[in-house]
Write a protein that binds this DNA or RNA. Structure first.
Length: 430
RNA sequence: GCGGGCGUAGCCAAGAGGUUAAGGCAGUGGAUUGUGGUUCCACCAUUCGUGGGUUCGAGUCCCAUCGUCCGCCCCA
C-alpha cells in the first residue's frame, strides 16, 4: 500500500468528535468573555529564538522537543510548542501593555512538540489558554485559577485536584538554586543520569525525579519554602486565602516545579487521577519576568493552558452530546421533482431551516428510511404528481401524519412550520 | 530516546501452520414499480498494516518497517 498516512503524532478530528470540540470552545468562549478576556490569535510559527529565550534553554521543550527547521530565507523557524511566548511577543510588539493597566487575553489553537506520541499526547496537540498581563495582585492569580475551575466545572469535570506551590521571586529562586546545588554536589555520582545532567542546568527539576535513589537524596535537600522572602511568602498566603474565599479546594505540593523556566511565585496544576501518567489537564502560574526578558517593559503576568485532547477524551466518556440533526429531510423522485427539491431545499435554508436533501433518487421507501435515520422531525416529499402541481407533501415522522401544501404556501407559513419543528425537536419530558 | 503489547471489512470481532478468512453492527439491492421506524432474502475481505524470509503450505512462525497503545522520561 503506497497510501500516505497522517504524520506520526498527528490525527484527524472527525465530525463525531468535532461536536465535542465545538462544545468546549463555546463554553470556554462564554466563560472567558464574561470575565473580560479577549481572544488573541498569534502565528503558529515564530523565530526559534523566541522560544529559546522565553521557555528556557535548559528545558526539555527547548532541548529536545521543538519542531525547528530553516525556511527558504535561512531563518530558523519553530512551530510553537506552547502559547505563552507568542502572546508575550505580541504584547510587546503591538505595545498592548500601553492600552491601560491590565490586558486579559485568551487563545486556542494547535501546538507542536516532537515527542513520542501516546494516549493524550500528540505531536500536534491543542491548548486553550489565558494570560493576564499587568497585575501583581494576588487577586489576579486567584481570578485565573477560578476561571480554570469554572471551565472544568461547567464541562462536567468535577473530580480534579488543584496542586499549587510558590516558586518565590526570581531572587528567591536564585538563592535556593545555589543552595540546592551545593547540597547535591557531594551526591553527584549517586544521582540518576537524568538528574546528573540537570544538576547545573535545571537543578529544581531533580526534586521531582522518580528515581528512588535520587528521591532519597532529595528528601533531605533544602526546601524551597525556606528560601522564600517574607514578601513572597505573604503573597502566596494571600493567593491561598483568596482560593479559600472562593471555595476552591487545593493541595499544597512543594515539589511542584513545572517544566518551564519562566515561572515565578504561584505555580499550579489541575490534575485528574483517571488520566494516569498524562494526568495534568491544566498547568499554569505566574511569570513576572518573562515580558522583560523578551525585551518588553516590566509587566507581570499570570496564566494557564489546558490540553484539549485530554479534556475532550474525558468529556466523551461523561457527556452525551446529541448529534446535530436537520429540521427537514427532503425526498424526491423523478427528474422534475428532483430539480424542484433542490430549489426547495435552498429556499428553506435561506429561511433558516436546516435541510438535508436526499440525492439518491432511489425508491421512496429507501429515502424515507434515510429520513427517519437523519433524526429530522419533518420529511418533505416531492414526487412526480406534487412536482406537476407545484405542491409538496409534509410528513411528520414521529406520528406519520401527512398534509399536502402548495410550495408557495409552505414558504408563507415558514413561521408556523418553525414552531412545529421546534416543538418536535424539543427533548421529551416525562 | 529506552522497555513491552497490539495491527483481520467503515466499526466491533472469531481465527493458535493445512484453504470456503466465522459472526455482529453499518451499508447496498430486493420482498414493498409513491411512503420510514419491525421482519425476511441477497450482496458486501482474490485477502489479514507494509516489505522480505522460513515452509510442500503463512492471517497464524521469523526479521525488518510503519502505525497505535501501555510503562519510563517529560509534559497539556
Amino acid at each position: 500500500m503506497d497510501f500516505i498516512q497522517a504524520s506520526r503524532g498527528t490525527r484527524d478530528i472527525l465530525p463525531d468528535e468535532t461536536l465535542y470540540w465545538q462544545h468546549v470552545e463555546a463554553v470556554a468562549r462564554q466563560i472567558l468573555q464574561r470575565a473580560a478576556y479577549r481572544e488573541i490569535r498569534t502565528p503558529i510559527f515564530e523565530q526559534t529564538g523566541l522560544f529559546e529565550r522565553g521557555i528556557g534553554e535548559a528545558t526539555d521543550i527547548v532541548g529536545k522537543e521543538m519542531y525547528t527547521f530553516d525556511d527558504r530565507g535561512h531563518r530558523s523557524i519553530t512551530l510553537r510548542p506552547e502559547g505563552t511566548a507568542g502572546a508575550v511577543r505580541s504584547l510587546i510588539e503591538n505595545k498592548l501593555y500601553a492600552q491601560g493597566g491590565v490586558q486579559r487575553l485568551w487563545y486556542t489553537g494547535p501546538m507542536f512538540r516532537y515527542e513520542r506520541p501516546g494516549a493524550g499526547r500528540q505531536r500536534q496537540f491543542h491548548q486553550i489558554g489565558v494570560e493576564l498581563f499587568g497585575s501583581r495582585n494576588p487577586r489576579a492569580d486567584a481570578e485565573v485559577i477560578a476561571l480554570a475551575a469554572d471551565l472544568l466545572q461547567t464541562l462536567a469535570l468535577e473530580d480534579w485536584v488543584l496542586a499549587i506551590n510558590s516558586l518565590g521571586s526570581f531572587e528567591d529562586r536564585q538563592d535556593y538554586r545555589s543552595a540546592l546545588v551545593r547540597y547535591l554536589e557531594p551526591y553527584k555520582d549517586d544521582l540518576d543520569p537524568d538528574s546528573q545532567q540537570r544538576l547545573y542546568r535545571n537543578p529544581l527539576r531533580i526534586l521531582d525525579s522518580k528515581d528512588p535513589n535520587t528521591q532519597a537524596i532529595a528528601q533531605d535537600a533544602p526546601k524551597l519554602q525556606a528560601f522564600l522572602s517574607s514578601e513572597s511568602r505573604e503573597y502566596f498566603e494571600q493567593v491561598l486565602h483568596l482560593l479559600e474565599a472562593l471555595q476552591i479546594p487545593y493541595q499544597l505540593d512543594h515539589c511542584l516545579v513545572r517544566g518551564l523556566d519562566y515561572y515565578t511565585h504561584t505555580a499550579f496544576e489541575f490534575k485528574l487521577v483517571e488520566l494516569g501518567t498524562q494526568g495534568t489537564l491544566c498547568g499554569g502560574g505566574r511569570y513576572d519576568r518573562l515580558v522583560a526578558e523578551l525585551g518588553g517593559p516590566e509587566v507581570p503576568a499570570v496564566g494557564w493552558a489546558i490540553g484539549l485532547e485530554r479534556l475532550i477524551s474525558l468529556l466523551q466518556g461523561r457527556l452525551d452530546l446529541d448529534p446535530v440533526s436537520p429540521d427537514v429531510y427532503l425526498v424526491a423522485r423523478g427528474q422534475v421533482a428532483e430539480e424542484q427539491s433542490l430549489t426547495l431545499a435552498r429556499a428553506l435554508q435561506q429561511r433558516h431551516f436546516a435541510v438535508e436533501l436526499d440525492l439518491s433518487g432511489s425508491a421512496f421507501a429507501k429515502q424515507l428510511k434515510r429520513a427517519d435515520r437523519s433524526g429530522a422531525p419533518l420529511c418533505l416529499v416531492v414526487g412526480e404528481a406534487e412536482a406537476e402541481a407545484q405542491q409538496v407533501q409534509l410528513k411528520w415522522l414521529a406520528s406519520g401524519d401527512q398534509q399536502m401544501r402548495s410550495q408557495a404556501e409552505l414558504m408563507e407559513q415558514a413561521n408556523i412550520l418553525r414552531e412545529k419543528i421546534n416543538l418536535a425537536k424539543s427533548p421529551k419530558r416525562l
